[in-house]
């Protein structure tokens, strides 16, 4: 298993750099992962990450994009409830990139 080092500690990650253990996650670690993805975390970014983590806690899966869009629209105003806005926040894809930062497993599309 590959690992990622942060603050002198080894964290297990998968082949694509996603944390293996959900409980390893911390805000600091998220910041660190974001940096490796060239993302500067803002409140808006955190809003997404927090929602993802909450949703995952409840459903054991990352939400569909359309659920995420709707939720962000609810919280941050309808003008931001769209995929375009999410892609501005996470150019690597709100599902893939944001999940990585949120410490969730890599989302599976359709299987």
């Amino acid at each position: 298993m590959p690992t990622m080092e942060f603050q002198g500690k080894q964290y297990e990650i998968d082949e694509d750099g996603y944390l293996v253990n959900l409980d390893d996650w911390s805000k600091e670690l998220a910041d660190h992962i974001a940096k490796t993805e060239d993302i500067q975390m803002t409140d808006a970014h955190w809003e997404v990450v927090n929602f993802l983590r909450d949703y995952y806690q409840k459903y054991q899966i990352a939400p569909m994009i359309k659920i995420l869009v709707k939720e962000i629209g609810k919280v941050m105003g309808p003008e931001k409830g769209n995929t375009k806005y999410l892609y501005e926040l996470y150019p690597g894809g709100p599902a893939k990139q944001a999940c990585k930062i949120a410490g969730l497993p890599k989302p599976t599309g359709c299987v």
């Binding site: 054991q60 899966i61 599976t108 299987v111």
Partner: peptide, 16 residues
């Protein structure tokens, strides 16, 4: 199911 949707996830998704 393949995606690992738990029962309440399925209902909430369809609810959506």
């Amino acid at each position: 199911n393949h995606l690992g949707l738990e029962p309440h996830t399925i209902t909430s998704s369809i609810e959506f």
